[in-house]
Design a protein around this nucleic acid. Structure first.
Lengths: 351, 351
DNA sequence: TTGTAGGCGTTATCAA
DNA sequence: TTGATAACGCCTACAA
């Protein structure tokens, strides 16, 4: 009785992808031999002629091993799951690019999920992600305190880790996992000092809700730097963590025609970009009339006019580092610091 | 003899994720019943009490079904594979965001691969992607003519499609698959006419290598529009399809101090942004001294000073459309057109 | 060196 | 309605 297994014979026509059975039959060997011939591991114990026969058969059939089947046989998927808040934001897309590059370099398949800046969504994503049994889960959302999902998220990640997965967090200390921590506070502090040195005194700080960790750290760091530099208390404005937030807050600020502000500092670059546009829309000149600074050093900073002063964060490198930490295999909760650098450009000329 | 199956009992300790067996045992039912209770499909034929018992057990064990196992049992993965050239480019990240949003809305798992603007890499990616057995493969790279990989890519995709997969291409007509085609030529043509109407005559066009389809279409369309509007032949400069390309070409152009140019038009926005910066670095004033226009209408356009004139492409929508086409299930090669709109801003004031 | 057979976690079929 | 059990495609002891 002929072997009726394999995709080609099984179903009616040329449908369904060829399986290892098909390749084996085509090559005239057993599945075991075919398997050995294909995945280099124990290749050396296979007769060379068979190897080439199997390879030729695979080539002829255009065979590709079924990753899910391999995953289930081997017990894990060569997959890296990345959770970001928003791919369309340069902050996250740069980190994502770093993670993806590093993952691909390790022959891992990167998967991207977007939490849309919602902790609930993030939790839900991590939950379903566990079903994929990825080797690594990297969460690069913006941790939000007091959202009530933190404990649940921690539990979910702990369960995943207990099952052998690797968890790495980006910039959201507080959960007991390896965390790539961007030096937000330090960078902001140094920026404050640098601005005071350039003569700025009456500063408006644009930050997001204090529950957003990244924003709070940057804001607090900046205030501390101001104190340290002996500058007067700044005006702190709370708004959205987006370009629109920066625009709106600045527009409102300028509508008041407050004369007592000589610079607007935002907790990230996209907010600062919004602020610059608002300043222009108010008939003022960013840089000349009002200093502007941001945080992140996204690539557009140098293309703005004036070029945006900011605190450089090696975003791509952060992504790469996260992957390296994940692949390091150490589950111990710890903080991997990433340093930041003040970059003063024309948006904050000496005053 | 007790049932020794299930992850918890199988391996030594609390390692390994709980399996359906564990849940079934915990709930005191068979795997079959547990399976039925968990995936709503034939839920109605399961005794309500069992359903709740299974659900409770799953909850208690923090169970997540193994997607690969489901994939292999069901014969397909709830996965969408997206191939882009570069996530860190707003053009692609916006399309990616659209695809991802639409995929998630259909409870599909999006996967992103980056071809890094290399046709070879793109081919290799599609090859390995087939191993994932995704339901859909969307290729949104920049098709490059004459790269020699086109035929191979077509074959690979055809094999995938023959095995039941759905292929959708974005903006790279020529391969026999459903293609979401951005109206590059038309938009560029209308932009040319609009610029001539505003008084521009001596235009420098910044385009990429003609092999890059998108660039060529936009360039050709623009030239056609110029002819149609009766404008003199433009100066066509070939450079990289990136911000750096736009910067370099414009810097070189201006180094020649060519007086006979009143506008620089680039085949995409990031190149135009580079051009604006180069114009400034040359001591000139973009908009006032030299008109500048791009293509795509990425979100930063309005934050530049002057705001960048461009041709709007509904990038996010392109991604969503690609997913819709894929889910439509029609394998017939065809073109799904996406219209583009000229948006004139301050970078091209009437002259 | 090769092949046989059992297992991976799930779903679906078929009796009971 | 429920429970064995056979797939699904692959890998890997173990035996030949």
């Amino acid at each position: 009785m002929p072997d009726m297994r394999g995709a080609a014979s099984r179903r009616g026509r040329r449908t369904a992808a060829p399986t290892l059975h098909d390749v084996a039959r085509e090559a005239g060997v057993s599945v075991a031999t075919a398997s050995r011939a294909l995945n280099g591991s124990s290749t050396r114990n296979v007769k060379p002629e068979y190897i080439s026969r199997v390879l030729a058969a695979a080539e002829r059939l255009n065979y590709q091993p079924h990753l899910s089947a391999q995953a289930i046989a081997l017990g894990s998927t060569p997959t890296v799951a990345l959770v970001v808040s928003d791919v369309d934001d340069p902050y996250f897309s740069s980190i994502a690019a770093g993670v993806i590059d590093a993952a691909v370099a390790q022959r891992l398949v990167p998967t991207v999920a977007i939490a849309d800046r919602s902790p609930d969504r993030e939790l839900q994503i991590v939950r379903t992600l566990r079903g994929q049994r990825p080797r690594v889960i990297i969460v690069a959302g913006s941790r939000i305190d007091g959202s009530g999902t933190d404990a649940a998220l921690g539990e979910e990640l702990a369960a995943y880790q207990a099952a052998g997965g690797q968890v790495v967090l980006v910039s959201q200390e507080g959960l007991p996992f390896p965390t790539v921590a961007i030096d937000n506070a330090g960078g902001a502090r140094r920026l404050a000092i640098a601005l005071v040195e350039r003569g700025y005194r009456r500063i408006a700080v644009l930050c997001a809700a204090p529950a957003i960790r990244t924003s709070r750290e940057r804001c607090d760091g900046f205030l501390a730097g101001l104190v340290e530099a002996g500058a007067p208390e700044p005006l702190v404005l709370q708004t959205g963590f987006t370009r629109a937030g920066g625009y709106d807050a600045t527009r409102d600020l300028l509508a008041d025609r407050r004369p007592d502000v000589d610079a607007v500092v935002a907790v990230n670059d996209v907010m600062a970009i919004g602020a610059m546009t608002a300043i222009r829309d108010a008939g003022l000149n960013p840089g000349r009339d009002l200093g502007v600074a941001g945080f992140d050093d996204i690539s557009w900073c140098v293309d703005l006019d004036p070029a945006l002063s900011t605190v450089a964060v090696p975003l791509h490198q952060v992504g790469v580092t996260a992957m390296e930490v994940a692949l390091g295999g150490d589950h111990q909760p710890r903080v991997i610091p990433v340093t930041t650098t003040v970059v003063l450009r024309d948006s904050t000329p000496p005053r």
